[in-house]
């Protein structure tokens, strides 16, 4: 009955929708029931963007229940603080350290990183400048960060590969895949015992496929 809940957030234009499309497809190819919910329209004009992904044996609500996120994935540093209604003591945060001021705000708030560390017991904040120097261009940062997140999860690599192949624009697979796999090597999750994340457990072992 376990359903895994991933809340993906960022700022309009950063590529949250593409990243969440890849993720959702990967969960389907790993053999799970899966649902994703997001808001289009106004939020694309530089506003906060969010996408809920839920996968498991059978998923009902496309929206993550309050306090139910296993992971928050963010492409911007302060954005996770907007969504604490979905967070619990065990929620894992994977976030970019990218700081984007909202329109009409000149100073980025102080103490965001410290606050995130206080709230999230497991946290990986990725230095995007460093990451960007290792991948083709900033365009692929969203997919590289998805690679970091993937290290925390038990989805088989071929499912990610297929999902990226069918989701990204034609001709960009190689660059996206290399960004993803590089991100994956940086993941703290990869060095942890997978079962310690307490998310998927033995049900997450994906069926073999050719």
């Amino acid at each position: 009955m376990t359903v895994s809940n991933i809340l993906m957030v960022g700022v309009g234009g950063q590529g949250i929708i593409l990243a969440s499309n890849i993720f959702t497809a990967a969960t389907m190819y790993a053999g799970f029931d899966t649902k994703k919910s997001e808001i289009h329209g106004m939020s694309q004009r530089g506003g906060s963007v969010f996408s809920h992904i839920r996968y498991g044996q059978e998923v009902f609500s496309p929206v993550i229940p309050e306090g139910g996120a296993h992971f928050v994935f963010s492409l911007e540093l302060m954005e996770p603080l907007r969504w604490l209604d979905f967070v619990n003591r065990e929620t894992v945060l994977v976030s970019s350290d990218k700081r984007i001021n909202p329109a009409n705000v000149d100073t980025y708030p102080d103490g965001v990183a410290a606050e995130l560390k206080r709230i999230f017991s497991t946290i990986q904040i990725v230095d995007v400048k460093k990451l960007q120097s290792k991948i083709a261009s900033a365009t692929f940062l969203n997919v590289a960060l998805l690679g970091v997140l993937s290290g925390f999860l038990d989805l088989p690599l071929p499912a990610w590969e297929t999902a990226i192949g069918e989701t990204v624009p034609r001709g960009t697979f190689d660059k996206n895949w290399s960004a993803f796999t590089h991100g994956r090597t940086l993941s703290d999750g990869a060095t942890e015992k997978r079962s310690d994340t307490g998310v998927i457990g033995d049900k997450g072992r994906a069926p073999d496929r050719g």
Binding site: R45, G46, S48, A103
Partner: peptide
């Protein structure tokens, strides 16, 4: 297990949509 959501201790400025 119905823990109350944590409120951030710092003010997070709103990010309304805006003309590009």
């Amino acid at each position: 297990g119905g823990e109350a959501p944590t409120a951030p201790a710092i003010t997070v400025p709103p990010r309304p949509p805006a003309l590009c």
